[in-house]
Design a protein around this nucleic acid. Structure first.
Lengths: 323, 323
DNA sequence: CAACCAGTTCGAAACGTTTCTATGCCAATC
DNA sequence: GATTGGCATAGAAACGTTTCGAACTGGTTG
């Protein structure tokens, strides 16, 4: 491995001069500089990141912690982030699984974005205590080196309930995500507030796990408990897909006999037939704004909590009640 | 930041003793060791990765280079890899975009898997010259620190052609991927070999780009050039989806008037109606075997080229000719 | 009693950078 | 001709580890 020492030797200068030249420090004369640069290229020198990090304490890398790589869900989010980080000269890496937290605790990352419910609050607090810049997308966090950019779950869930209510539904099946996950808990809280505000509405809570299997189970349940004039609000589209899959094996027709509302508007939803009615929001925007927040934190500026707003995406999976 | 120096001071021992204790070196007495360990925990010491890497030249991190994060395509692949790397105590990170190559050139990674056509052969050769362990999934590479685990594109494309031929088709539209990509080029070569071997078959090559838009364009083209008794072989499912989308706005019925064969069997395909007939293979297996190959390389063992085999997944999108 | 040994611990060098401070040189000034 | 100032370069310390060889203990041996 070529090091600056080797270059210094070949160029008959000191290592400090080489370092300056390589970093474009204007103190070194143009002539020396170009000589050093050409020698470096010729020896195809590659800086040793570890040594540099050790000195500068900056890696120019940010990590995005995701629960899984599943679905095209993250694709757009990450694209939004790249839009911000690439011009800012940060490399973005995706980390998943418990063992990758070590990258963060061992200071290999200048900052991190977290959208992974397996990432414990305890770890997060530890890191915050060490002044690690972190932006959270799936929980609340109030430290001076953390920022939150959260989905408007309450708004979205309320929009969904309002929409169904407006179409005449008074009986709701609510298929939740895993308890303890911020998104599911917030959506559930909004639903419960809605139910309190509308005494004429009944809601049956069906615990789910944000996966297709939960949707299928829920579908099975509602069929046996009566579907007429009821709408099923799945707390994410994936569970709605699970419902579709299950119902395809039955004679029930979605949008007529069975009504389904989703949440997330994932790409797959547009291929469902009938098109799923769901809650929509811009993942790119979420990514961009999270990235911007993290950038701010890394520059030492605090960053106020932000909210990503939602809207209804109207398909044909929620019809009207027939009375 | 707590360092081993701080711990040494508090424990009244030298830094080397602390280092030994932290690394579980049996030379240090159990008593001292436990004292040091408890002090370390109390001060919540976190090792500085950069310093350690500088010394040991091992990061215990492998990078997976992907063209994009799109689709659930990579999900399974990565799960397969994690199965191998997690027990081997390696952290896996996903790198995308040109700027993340720096992680590799600056030796932040012990090894890498490449499935990214934007990753240039030139860079790859540079890295190979530096003895960087790398496994490639999307090209050939023959260096002593590289390994290849490739999809059996030729076999898969041949299976597809044979299947359609067996169902009576003699006229083929071939929707390719971008020229220069290994997968597309191999599939095309197989198709051309097939055409040479079957003089009774005609094939029209339609250049595509592995995206939905290409599929839509191709659909438009075949409609205006006659669909009867012709089958369209899309070199990936995503383009087939593009075709479906386009055809949905027409009166042509897939599997009857228009026949479509895909490649990849992506998750979305199962939601298409009629179900897409396509070429299937195990992404988990691909991931596992690539990871195992990389592990071998990192341990200094060479690794023979490997092939991932394919099979037909029969849906209803390819019917029969009606003569 | 000197020599040796095993079990612990310590000191110091090394990894490859960055960066602060010192030095050398030359021309311009008094 | 001594002093100054500016420019280019050199020297050396520092970052936090790991690890080699040395050194210090007591106890055992010849």
């Amino acid at each position: 491995m070529t090091t600056i020492k080797d270059i210094a030797q070949r160029a008959n200068v000191s290592i400090s001069t080489v370092s300056y030249a390589l970093n474009g420090n204007p103190l070194v004369s143009a002539e020396t500089s170009s000589r050093i640069l050409s020698i470096a290229k010729e020896m195809n020198y590659m800086p040793n990141a570890a040594a540099r990090f050790l000195k500068t304490r900056k890696t120019q890398i940010v990590g995005v912690f995701l629960a899984s790589f599943s679905g095209s869900f993250y694709d757009k989010l990450l694209r939004g982030m790249q839009e911000v980080f690439v011009p800012a000269k940060y490399s973005v890496i995706i980390c998943s699984g418990p063992q990758s937290q070590r990258l963060l605790t061992q200071r290999m990352l200048d900052g991190a974005a977290i959208l992974d419910r397996h990432f414990s609050d305890k770890s997060l607090n530890m890191l915050a205590a060490h002044k690690q810049p972190i932006v959270v997308l799936d929980r609340e966090s109030h430290h001076d080196t953390t920022a939150q950019v959260l989905l408007d779950n309450v708004g979205g869930a309320t929009q969904a309930m309002d929409y169904c209510y407006g179409r005449g539904f008074r009986r709701f099946y609510i298929v939740t995500g895993p308890t303890g996950t911020y998104d599911s808990d917030m959506r559930l809280a909004a639903v419960q507030a809605f139910l309190r505000a509308h005494p004429d509405v009944t809601g049956h809570i069906l615990p789910g796990a944000f996966d297709k299997a939960s949707g299928a189970r829920a579908a099975e349940h509602i069929i046996s408990h009566g579907v007429e004039n009821a709408v099923s609000f799945c707390f994410n589209d994936e569970m709605a897909v699970g419902m579709y899959n299950y119902l395809q094996q039955t004679t029930f027709e979605i949008g007529k006999d069975v009504h389904i509302m989703g949440f997330d508007n994932i790409e797959l939803s547009q291929y469902l037939s009938p098109r799923l009615t769901t809650i929509n929001y811009s993942l790119e925007d979420w990514g961009r704004r999270s990235a911007q927040a993290l950038l701010n934190l890394m520059q030492g500026n605090p960053c106020a909590p932000q909210v990503i707003h939602t809207s209804i995406f109207e398909g044909q999976s929620v019809g009207r009640t027939c009375e």
